[in-house]
């Protein structure tokens, strides 16, 4: 079986995969930063008392979570030009990933904030802190710790979701595999190499998660009060 497997072709295509690897890496980083921004804004809107800010955030989060990312991507890619907005593929791709992942991140951050005991907020209120001071000094530093592991999980999902951008011809990892597969009729070589590259990214993120876990472990834990 392996005599048909051409390592030489893979070696020949390595520069293309290197390019794809870097493309996936940086567009994931940019998308994740965008998703964090979207998530923080959505979460802040969702935590307000006013329905005017809460309801739109809830509808957005539900709409994103209820529909496939592929449908969202196609809406932005094919739909927006019909509405007169023409954007480069790469921008559409990063936008789709940020808007999609942001909805999930909003819920992750909200869970982190809500996990902070009511007594912590009351201690802040009772000492005369303003809402912003309470958030900055008491709630967010504690919520941050609870939030890091699920955020890294979401980052791993985002990296894999970025494969969909190959469908709007962004040249990234999966696109590199597709090119090798169609140029040389070698789908096994093409997609195994792609998969191996994703595995490297996955272990990189997992290492990051372990590092942050060790850092958090060395910090004092929440007391059970």
């Amino acid at each position: 079986m392996l005599e048909n497997f051409s390592f030489r072709t893979i070696a020949e295509y390595l520069p293309l995969f290197g390019h794809g690897f870097l493309a996936t890496l940086w567009l994931s980083v940019v998308s994740f930063a965008g998703a964090l921004a979207v998530g923080i804004v959505l979460c802040a809107m969702n935590l307000q008392r006013s329905r005017l800010s809460k309801v739109p955030a809830k509808i957005y989060i539900d709409a994103i979570r209820a529909t496939p990312l592929l449908a969202q991507l196609y809406f932005l890619y094919f739909g927006l030009p019909r509405l007169g907005i023409v954007l480069p593929e790469l921008v559409v791709g990063i936008l789709a990933l940020s808007l999609n992942s942001g909805a999930y991140i909003a819920e992750i951050i909200r869970a982190g904030i809500l996990s902070i005991a009511r007594g912590q907020v009351e201690a802040g209120i009772a000492s005369g802190m303003t809402y912003m001071q309470r958030m900055r000094l008491v709630v967010l530093p504690q919520a941050f710790r609870v939030t890091i592991p699920p955020l890294l999980g979401q980052a791993i999902v985002l990296v894999k979701d970025s494969a969909l951008l190959s469908l709007i011809s962004v040249s990234e990892l999966t696109r590199a595999g597709q090119l090798l597969a169609s140029d040389r009729f070698m789908p096994a070589e093409g997609f195994i190499t792609t998969a191996a590259c994703y595995l490297i990214l996955y272990y990189g993120l997992k290492g990051l998660a372990a590092l942050s876990g060790r850092w958090l472990g060395s910090q004092p834990m929440r007391s059970r009060t």
Binding site: G119, E122, A123, A126, V138, R145, Q219, P220, T225
Partner: peptide, 14 residues
Amino acid sequence: EIGFVFQSFNLYPH
């Protein structure tokens, strides 16, 4: 101007 001591202490754990 008002100190408040809680039953469950509510110290900041971090």
